[in-house]
Nucleic acid binder design. Structure first.
Lengths: 391, 391
DNA sequence: AAAAGCGTTGTAAACGCTTACTTTTCGAAG
DNA sequence: CTTCGAAAAGTAAGCGTTTACAACGCTTTT
């Protein structure tokens, strides 16, 4: 190793110099840059962050030195020093079951991924990175990573209630937390969710007003999921207001997956009770499985049974029959969550505690309506704008 | 603020003490823990990491203090001190186009997400977190986040060639890099990819041997994508070896999306040239769009044209007709990538430079074969085992 | 009974950066 | 040609850990 006397930095310099054939064994630091540029480390730091006054000539010297050394600031040291990490954590429910590959692959088609993408894009736009953290009983590392997160990220976005209220409150005492798809009643954190009530109401009305149904069914998502619970409750109340029947036997338990929907419908078909005229499903994947099971039993959709989904994922537009569904923008959900979190980080105060995003009924053929004339690729604009609710 | 003389830590202690009504304004540090437990910070650190010898009684005192203070080690400080961050970076191509929601939503159904999930699960199992980083021209933050990553993560996984060879080499001089879905010829980094050659060969053979086709077509993925290029090239060579025709007019350009596949097929249908007997598509989404366009033109699949996909995403099993495709395990891809990266981090040397994962032909109805009797949910086990290739 | 050895604990120096505070520099005014 | 003041640059003290090294018992050995 080669050291300039009184020189604290590493030997990265030797790469450029001709004093020996030493190999770089670590990244250059601001000490290296400072030495090469002939200034102090404070000046290097200032040039780097362009906060305070650095004379243009000096700045250039520093920037040249940085480029020559291929200097990249160590963001960890930065974080330690400034307390700011420029990292946002995204916690989601890991549904993988042991060695069951399917669970991961199916789950990956869930809305979660779209949310993650939206969040990542928005985070990047704000200058943040996104740290992913799967959690849940089935997750290999359990809850541990979550706790350590508080020292790594500036804020946390939690999908689909990974924690109970108490834990969230605990967490949000340490760092800002945004809850996604929660029930929206948490006092501890900001909540972002879609308008399940409005969605299921418009769906119920459509079934009643347009298709004059008298008896309906519902296929749920994963047990205990706030979105699934909200969708079922909203659907039921809207349906019952309309004087239509939602019998217990027609409430099927699924788990957000196609396989779950298929299984639930197969089991329902073994029962003696006559089928309702329509099954509203908690998401699109479930609807796909439900339709498959109905077809397998020789029933036609929509001639014999009507089916609807929720989410409007791209692929189901190409299905036969094209799926009637509720459109929500998953990426918007992620984006808004990040925006809210960043706003909290900046102001440390946000006027709004709950943000409710709009949904939109998309009528296609699976509910018995006429085929649309456009190509599936044409139809993708959300027409409604976000609603804000303060509480 | 309240300070014990000579006490360096913050005032988090006051929460528990009864000397005042001060509010916690920051997280407790090992100084707080050390003081409360009546030991030095070194002992706290040792108890925390359980590396060297700490007397059980002492350890207990420390652990109790930690619990009482709800101490969570600051991983950033840890990272600075030890040089280890326990974070892996995952760089992917951000395909979002400006305000076009569809691009994100469709893209999110791509295989990428499954890979990410697999990587996250495996990373967690190794004790690492996953830092997501979208990159590409369309990404809001451009390339900048990528460069800063080198100071944040211990290793990098790059999906689908975000960078050119030179940049990868540059990066991998700083930290270990694993390339996913690359061409596998990078000397700078470890590569993990699927066996596109074997896959397309078996597909071609099936078409030729079982369905006796004389003329075939291909629908590509996004231009320049290594996987798409490899699939097209392999398919062509296998097809031509069999003496079957793949005309230029039957090579359609798409972009991995359903809309792209639909558009490509619509354009093809306006041409005068007779259709080939089969279209092999670069992925499942594309195949779905292709089938849609064929149906819209009054053509039947598989009676009039055969179609195949690639990936075996769950939803297309529920399609009409169920899609003949090549199964690959996206989550395995992510898992293996993480394993390789972690191994590199541990040994700083890995025997294998390229890892090729197996694929499997899954014959369903879209290629004209008979319907399977099982439920789609039943069929999901990979039968082959990973192949390792050293170079 | 003193020395040696060993297991435990403490002290203090990094790690690479930011930033409050201090010193130097430089140009304009006196 | 000083003097003064602001602007620019430097000094050094953290940020919260880890860890090499020193110090301190205690038991064991001679």
């Amino acid at each position: 190793m080669y050291f300039v006397s009184g020189y604290r930095g590493n030997n990265a310099l030797s790469l450029l110099g001709n004093q020996g054939e030493y190999v770089v064994d670590s990244q250059p630091t601001i000490y290296d840059v400072a030495q090469r540029a002939g200034v102090s480390i404070a000046t290097v730091s200032r040039a780097l962050n362009s906060l305070s006054s650095v004379r243009p000539a000096t700045r250039d010297k520093v920037l040249v030195a940085m480029r020559e050394l291929k200097f990249v600031p160590n963001s960890v040291a930065r974080g330690l020093s400034s307390g700011k990490h420029w990292i946002l954590g995204l916690v989601f429910m890991q549904t993988a079951v042991d060695n069951n590959v399917l669970a991961v692959e199916e789950a990956s088609l869930l809305y979660t991924d779209i949310v993650i993408r939206g969040a990542e894009a928005r985070a990047a736009a704000h200058g943040y990175s996104l740290l992913l953290c799967g959690a849940g009983e089935n997750h290999p590392a359990g809850m541990t990573p979550l706790m350590n997160l508080t020292g790594t990220v500036d804020g946390l976005i939690m999908l689909d209630r990974v924690l109970v209220e108490d834990e969230v409150a605990d967490l949000s005492r340490r760092i800002p937390v945004v809850l996604l798809a929660g029930r929206g009643d948490s006092s501890a954190a900001i909540t972002v969710r879609v308008d399940n009530e409005q969605a299921m109401r418009s769906l119920a009305q459509h079934f009643i007003d347009v298709h004059h149904v008298k008896r309906v069914g519902f296929v749920s998502g994963h047990e205990g999921s706030p979105d699934s619970v909200a969708r079922e409750a909203s659907f039921r109340s809207a349906i019952e207001e309309g004087g239509v029947t939602l019998a217990d036997v027609d409430i099927l338990k699924s788990d957000w997956t196609s396989a779950g929907g298929e299984g639930a419908m197969r089991r329902r078909l073994t029962l003696d009770a006559p089928l309702p005229e329509v099954f509203a499903c908690a998401n699109d994947q479930t609807a796909v499985g439900v339709i498959y099971a109905l077809h397998a039993a020789g029933l036609r959709v929509p001639e014999d049974v009507l089916v609807s989904g929720f989410d409007d994922i791209t692929l189901t537009r190409y299905f036969k029959p094209p799926l009637t569904t509720i459109r929500q923008s998953g990426s918007l959900l992620g984006e808004v969550a990040v925006d809210a979190l960043v706003a909290t980080l900046d102001n440390s105060e946000l006027a709004v505690r709950t943000i409710v995003l709009p949904t939109e009924l998309v009528v296609r053929e699976s509910c018995g309506c006429a085929a649309a004339s456009e190509s599936p690729a044409e139809i993708f604009k959300m027409t409604a704008t976000p609603t804000m609710v303060v509480n």
